[in-house]
């Protein structure tokens, strides 16, 4: 017994180090697996509160760009309103029928990261405003990410600039779909993989969200094709997509509530069970 105590006393530093190392490595590994640890996230009272204060200051510096974006959006909405006879815009409106005004929560990005492989945003609305995990987040230019964790007043968003993101996306004009992910290289580009070689594509084509996603409604803008890679081994394309959004400069965003989501998931689950 005496010897055990002596051993512990002698190696107390080493034991403390190994104990804490085990804890932190567990947290690290958990954060890289799909089911993330819910403990260490910036959607909590302390970090959310600090980020909100800091963001209040930063907002003044971005007022000009935010105004420009709002003005652009206004102009676009007005052009839709005044040109209702145009068949092209009428179709676009029709396909966005899933999104109504009361399905949208307007929120603000209070913290944004884009310089690591797994990037997250923090928003200043949470469970109190009706935000739940797995809701889609977009802004006027295109998609931003998916809600990951929520607290009473804040929520974190897994950005499209994250190695673990996978979003169903398609070519606007032909409905061929693939999956959208990020290779961690540049903040302006994401990759569309598993697109069949049958699809007729050229540089500059628009990519939008696909109909298979239960998180995003169909036809939300993502970006344009910037580069095409042909894989000689398989029958698939890999594309570089230039994002419409500047992910390094985000202000107001919209959170989408999807009413049919639970229904679709339940249905698919029932089919799997049978």
């Amino acid at each position: 017994m005496q010897q055990i105590f002596n051993f512990i006393l002698k190696n107390s530093n080493k034991i403390l180090f190994l104990l804490l190392l085990g804890t932190s490595l567990t947290l690290t590994i958990q954060s890289h697996s799909f089911h993330r640890s819910k403990i260490i996230s910036s959607a909590n009272f302390l970090s959310g509160g600090v980020y909100e204060k800091v963001n209040n200051l930063n907002e003044y510096l971005n007022l000009k760009t935010q105004n420009d974006e709002l003005a652009l959006e206004n102009a676009k909405l007005k052009s839709i309103l005044f040109n209702k006879k145009d068949t092209a815009t009428a179709k676009a409106l029709d396909s966005l029928k899933g999104v109504k005004l009361d399905d949208i929560i307007v929120s603000k990005v209070i913290h944004n990261s884009y310089n690591v492989y797994e990037n997250y945003l923090t928003l200043n609305s949470g469970e109190r405003d009706g935000v739940k995990p797995d809701m889609g987040v977009i802004n006027s230019l295109g998609i931003v990410g998916i809600i990951e964790n929520t607290s009473t007043n804040y929520s974190t968003v897994i950005s499209i600039l994250n190695k673990r993101t996978q979003i169903n996306a398609k070519i606007k004009k032909s409905d061929h779909f693939g999956s959208l992910n990020w290779n961690g290289k540049s903040t302006g580009f994401v990759q569309l993989t598993d697109l069949p070689r049958l699809a007729l594509i050229k540089i500059g084509d628009t990519i939008v969200t696909g109909g298979q996603s239960v998180i995003f409604p169909e036809n939300i803008n993502i970006g344009t094709i910037a580069k095409i890679y042909r894989d000689t081994q398989t029958n698939f394309y890999t594309l570089d997509i230039k994002l419409f959004n500047d992910m390094t400069n985000l202000g107001h965003v919209y959170i989408l509530k999807s009413k049919n989501r639970q229904e679709v998931i339940n249905l698919e689950k029932r089919e799997k069970d049978e």
Binding site: L20, S24, V116
Partner: peptide, 29 residues
């Protein structure tokens, strides 16, 4: 021992703010 414990605390607070799991905590330790 105080240094090791406080370094862990330092790292875990950084992780809390940058959504990085336990990477800062491990590096500081």
């Amino acid at each position: 021992s105080a240094l090791i414990a406080s370094s862990f605390l330092l790292g875990i607070i950084m992780d809390l703010f940058s959504n990085s799991g336990g990477t800062h905590a491990t590096a500081c330790l």
